[in-house]
């Protein structure tokens, strides 16, 4: 069930996905969307790891992917809790609303 795709293509896919996620983070103003695009970026990084691991036929790539997954889970839970607080405070989900630490 396996393919023999050149590693380059896998990495290019990961890069493209990552760049798109980055664009999304920079463009969107709603924090939910920003977090969503952050997930895209993390996923792309994980994809790169798995591609590399499969090129060498070693389990290290997947191990790194598991760690990334664990980290993502923690980050998402805390991030969403913060979103709830933001909403509770400012009554909006505008990321630019929380800009008191300026100057």
């Amino acid at each position: 069930m396996t393919t023999s795709v050149p590693m380059t293509h896998g990495l290019i896919l990961a890069g493209v996905l990552f760049a798109m996620g980055l664009v999304g983070v920079l463009v969107r103003r709603n924090v939910i969307f920003i977090l969503l695009c952050l997930e895209i970026m993390l996923n792309a990084a994980g994809l790169a790891f798995v591609v590399a691991g499969s090129r060498w036929g070693q389990a290290d790539g997947q191990v790194m992917f598991i760690f990334i997954l664990a980290m993502t889970a923690a980050e998402v839970s805390v991030g969403l809790a913060l979103v709830l607080q933001l909403h509770h405070h400012f009554k909006t989900l505008d990321a630019d609303a929380a800009s008191r630490m300026r100057g």
Partner: peptide, 17 residues
């Protein structure tokens, strides 16, 4: 230089990128 500290998260993300 203080203009670069406008408190907005997206601006900082842009800076990092």
């Amino acid at each position: 230089l203080s203009l670069t500290q406008n408190g907005q998260v997206r601006w900082y993300a842009m800076g990092m990128a």
